[in-house]
Amino acid sequence: SPEEIKAKALDLLNKKLHRANKFGQDQADIDSLQRQINRVEKFGVDLNSKLAEELGLV
């Protein structure tokens, strides 16, 4: 269901964000992850996106 997909995506992105902060990645990478999280919260996951591929939806 779209809600489950959204939850999985947010979980994955939050893990990536945590790792980025923990290991001191570029601020641009961290900002990009934050924008992705905001986009998923607002609009859900686009099944044509790279994120959908990472989640194994495509």
Rank of each mutant, 00 (worst) to 15 (best):
S1Y: 11
S1T: 14
S1H: 10
P2M: 14
P2H: 12
E3S: 10
E3V: 07
E4W: 14
E4G: 09
E4V: 10
E4H: 11
E4Y: 12
E4N: 10
E4Q: 11
I5C: 11
I5L: 13
I5T: 07
I5D: 05
I5S: 05
I5F: 07
I5M: 11
K6Y: 04
K6H: 04
K6E: 02
K6L: 08
K6M: 07
K6S: 04
K6V: 09
A7M: 11
A7N: 12
A7C: 11
K8Y: 04
K8N: 06
K8W: 05
K8A: 11
A9W: 04
A9T: 02
A9I: 10
A9Y: 05
L10S: 01
L10W: 00
L10C: 02
D11F: 04
D11V: 04
L12V: 09
L12Q: 06
L13A: 00
L13I: 02
L13Y: 00
L13R: 00
N14D: 05
N14C: 14
N14S: 09
N14Q: 10
K15V: 07
K15I: 08
K15F: 02
K15T: 07
K15L: 08
K16V: 04
K16C: 12
K16Q: 11
K16R: 13
L17E: 01
L17P: 01
H18Y: 08
H18C: 14
H18V: 14
H18S: 12
H18P: 01
R19Y: 15
R19I: 14
R19T: 12
A20P: 02
A20Q: 04
A20I: 07
A20C: 05
A20M: 13
N21E: 14
N21P: 03
K22R: 11
K22L: 15
K22M: 14
F23M: 14
F23A: 13
F23L: 15
G24Q: 08
G24H: 08
G24R: 04
Q25C: 15
Q25A: 15
Q25W: 15
Q25M: 13
Q25H: 13
Q25D: 12
D26Q: 09
D26L: 09
D26H: 10
D26I: 08
Q27K: 10
Q27A: 12
Q27D: 07
A28H: 11
A28F: 09
A28L: 09
A28T: 11
A28W: 08
D29K: 14
D29W: 15
D29M: 15
D29T: 15
D29V: 15
I30N: 03
I30M: 05
I30L: 06
D31M: 04
D31F: 00
D31A: 10
S32G: 09
S32T: 12
S32M: 15
S32H: 12
S32A: 14
L33V: 05
Q34C: 09
Q34K: 14
Q34D: 02
Q34F: 04
R35G: 09
R35Q: 12
R35Y: 04
R35P: 01
R35V: 09
R35N: 12
R35K: 12
R35W: 04
R35S: 11
Q36K: 07
Q36I: 12
Q36H: 06
I37N: 00
I37H: 01
I37Q: 02
N38T: 13
N38L: 06
R39W: 15
R39H: 15
V40I: 11
V40R: 00
V40P: 00
V40Y: 00
V40W: 03
V40L: 03
V40T: 06
E41A: 06
E41T: 09
E41Y: 04
E41V: 08
E41L: 08
E41K: 11
K42W: 07
K42N: 11
K42P: 01
K42M: 12
K42T: 09
F43S: 05
F43Q: 07
G44T: 00
G44N: 01
G44E: 01
V45C: 03
V45A: 02
V45R: 00
D46N: 07
D46R: 04
D46Q: 07
D46V: 05
L47Q: 07
N48P: 05
N48T: 11
N48W: 08
S49F: 02
S49N: 04
S49Y: 02
S49K: 01
S49C: 04
S49V: 02
S49G: 07
S49D: 07
K50Q: 13
K50V: 10
K50R: 08
K50F: 10
L51A: 02
L51T: 03
L51G: 01
L51I: 07
A52W: 10
A52V: 05
A52C: 04
A52T: 02
A52S: 04
E53D: 07
E53S: 08
E53M: 13
L55D: 01
L55T: 02
L55Q: 01
L55N: 01
G56M: 08
G56W: 04
G56D: 06
G56I: 04
L57N: 03
L57C: 06
V58K: 12
V58C: 11
V58M: 10
V58L: 10
V58A: 11
